[in-house]
Write a protein that binds this DNA or RNA. Structure first.
Lengths: 208, 208
DNA sequence: CTCTTTATGATACGACCGTACCATATTGGT
DNA sequence: ACCAATATGGTACGGTCGTATCATAAAGAG
């Protein structure tokens, strides 16, 4: 057998190229030739590792969510160990806002895939993110935990607040993307609600 | 001169066909031939009224927002005259949720255009909706008005709450679209926040 | 009634895209 | 050392898409 190249590594390299070029031109405008050029390989090689464009797109989505999960995890780890519920939620939400190039690309492409899945049933059948309410459950749990320790308002409905925070973050992320809103104003809105849910003077020492 | 056909009417008819087929197949998958077939006219006719596909897409967006504005206006009118701030806000938000086919199509296409505008500067230069924060200003004003008459919590920041309500509505609309959420649960979340902002027992008589 | 302008139709062209096919270099197995 | 399977490249094919071109029916103006 020839050069003994790691298949998975090559596939990720190509998927990365897909994400790069799609982030630049839009997912709808990306062709196999663009991906090949971006990855610095021949068109044939892209076909070799992904037999069809559909499979390439699916793998691209998979890689995108993987990278994003890792990114959020890194952000969480950077807040120190056990930073408290509020700081954890802050880190989760702020990591989702398109503030730098990587998160901007993620947001754009994830939105593109979502919209595509509405009219593409093959894409809709895809796991998409490993269940979409994982984040919702995590946030709900964090809020409940804060309520039990007296750090958050007991009158708040934890799950509804979790849904709301995630929903606001998503839309404001898109607003930042299209230039209708600045990351700062989005952050301010989120802080407003965190201040409302959590008892005052309960911000984490590491984030401010 | 020949049959003396109303130009604007024809253009609207074709734009309507564009919206129909795009709502079915997705905006990315729509071609001029599809639009022509849907409108029951020849391809040449579509070219005659819109010289280029780009112009057709722009006009489609324009028509889409016009129709939506009219729809929201009709919903507002249906709540009776002067229904109070809360009922007005409810009507505005609920009219935006993709609960029937028309609003579902609107939500899908508007999202598609938004995502497209990120990587298409010609589309980004388009007025899109007649300024995007018109709704934000309207909601802000309604909340402030309710605060002045004692119907809403004075401690709430009117503009931030308006932004939040719209943001939540937008994301949950998409969630409904992709089947992650039911219209009922989305409505419940919105009601939760309206209950929080507005003083209790202050719901309008026409909506419940 | 003809003429000229407007409205509509049929079809062709060039480009691009995803895919398939053919060719060939590389290297592990025996 | 040679064979065979794997890995990579070049290129061609069929289809579709947006657009352009040619043709013609319809109808007000004189």
């Amino acid at each position: 057998m020839p050069k003994r190249v790691d298949h998975d590594e090559r596939r990720t390299q190509i998927a990365e190229a897909l994400i790069q070029v799609a982030g630049r031109q839009g997912l709808h405008a990306v062709g196999m030739r663009d991906v090949a050029a971006e990855a610095g390989v021949s068109l044939r090689l892209v076909q070799y590792y992904f037999q069809t464009k559909e499979k390439l797109l699916f793998h691209g989505l998979q890689h995108l969510t993987d990278r994003f999960t890792a990114r959020v995890g890194a952000r969480l780890a950077a807040t120190g160990q056990d930073p408290g519920p509020r700081a954890t939620i802050e880190a989760l939400l702020l990591a989702s806002l398109p503030t730098d190039e990587e998160s901007r690309t993620f947001h754009l492409l994830y939105s593109s895939y979502s919209i595509l899945s509405v009219t593409d049933e093959a894409l809709a059948a895809q796991p998409f993110i490993d269940n979409p309410d994982a984040a919702e459950n995590a946030l709900t749990q964090l809020i409940q935990q804060a309520q039990e320790t007296g750090q958050a308002d007991d009158g708040a409905d934890a799950r509804t607040e979790a849904i709301s925070l995630l929903a606001m973050t998503a839309t404001m992320g898109t607003s930042i993307l299209v230039g209708q809103r600045t990351p700062e104003s989005a952050t301010a809105v989120l802080q407003y609600h965190l201040d409302r849910i959590f008892n005052s003077s309960q911000t984490s020492p590491t984030t401010r």
